[in-house]
């Protein structure tokens, strides 16, 4: 993006109140995660069996869980993990989905047909079920969760990139580039890719929220990142056993997930509006 355009884009983004709120939430969560070792009052995995299921107090602002661990500290460390999972999973989906989509849209023919059939098959599995099936096969744990969630985001990136390329491909400047003998590689990188970037950024931002939601859903079922690692979904899953006696254990991790997803949704919606002139592809 040229400098003037970039400035214009940032100005538009700054005017999107939703995007600013979203970015603030995400930045706060990221800071919480990065500086967790410095700012958390307790060790997130240290048990204190004398103080189990303590309701929120000045010593433990969000209370303690069934093993006496400080919930606030666990949520701070959980931010680190949730964002890490989200970025890596979406990165994986993007790295595989976007090139496949571009190739599918640009070359057409049997390549397109083959890739589109693959997408059809993947879309026959609801994305959460796809992730769930992959974890069922691969086993639980951090890397498998990232892989499972990442794979389930691939079809949406393929569809999006392909759709955009189909529009761009018909533009006169592509025809002109071809007429003067520009090679496919140069056209793809110089003319097609920049057009795909804007919608992909929007999709990736919204996808981050979905990825966090999915990963914590797996954690909630006990099929995600395993205890004692502080992960929001598994904290919520453990907390549901105590909703009668100590509802705060399930409440706060849920609020954390909600805020993270809300942040990415606000930012994604704001980006979409700010990038709108570039989304028109004219």
């Amino acid at each position: 993006m040229p400098k003037a355009k970039r400035y214009e884009f940032l100005r538009r983004l700054g005017h999107q109140r939703a995007a600013v709120i979203g970015a603030t939430i995400i930045a706060s969560l990221a800071l919480m995660g990065i500086f967790a070792p410095l700012i958390t009052p307790y060790n997130p995995v240290k048990q204190d069996l004398v103080k189990v299921l303590v309701p929120p107090s000045s010593a433990h602002p969000l209370g303690t869980d069934h093993l006496g661990r400080d919930i606030l500290s666990r949520i701070f460390y959980g931010a680190r993990l949730s964002l890490f999972i989200g970025f890596l999973a979406v990165g994986l989906g993007l790295a595989i989905g976007v090139p496949l989509g571009i190739v599918s849209g640009y070359y057409g023919g049997w390549v397109d047909i083959a890739i589109q059939r693959l997408v059809d098959i993947m879309l026959s599995f609801p994305s959460f079920l796809l992730a769930l099936s992959l974890v069922a096969l691969l086993g639980v744990g951090l890397s498998n969760v990232i892989l499972a969630v990442g794979v389930s985001t691939i079809p949406s990136f393929i569809r999006l990139a392909r759709g955009t390329v189909l529009v761009v491909r018909e533009q006169t400047y592509i025809e002109a580039a071809k007429a003067v003998g520009t090679g496919d590689t140069r056209i793809l990188f110089r003319h097609i890719l920049p057009n795909v970037t804007a919608p992909v950024i929007v999709q990736a931002t919204l996808g981050l929220g979905m990825a966090i939601l999915m990963a914590s859903g797996l954690g909630f079922l006990g099929l995600g990142v395993q205890p004692p690692t502080p992960e929001w979904g598994s904290m919520l899953g453990e907390g549901r056993n105590y909703i009668f006696s100590a509802p705060h254990v399930a409440t706060f991790p849920g609020i954390a997930i909600f805020l993270a997803v809300l942040g990415f949704n606000l930012l994604g919606d704001g980006l979409r509006d700010a990038l709108d002139p570039y989304l028109r592809l004219a």
């Binding site: 929220g209 939601l213 914590s216 859903g217 909630f220 979904g233 919520l236 907390g239 549901r240 909703i243 009668f244 509802p247 399930a250 409440t251 991790p253 849920g254 997930i257 909600f258 997803v261 809300l262 949704n265 606000l266 919606d269």
Partner: peptide
């Protein structure tokens, strides 16, 4: 609506249980 999209269903379920059942 934005809140609805961002809310984990399992958390909403637990909160509804806490409120309406407990």
């Amino acid at each position: 609506v934005l809140f609805g999209i961002s809310m984990p269903v399992y958390w909403l379920g637990i909160m509804l249980i806490v409120l309406f059942a407990i």
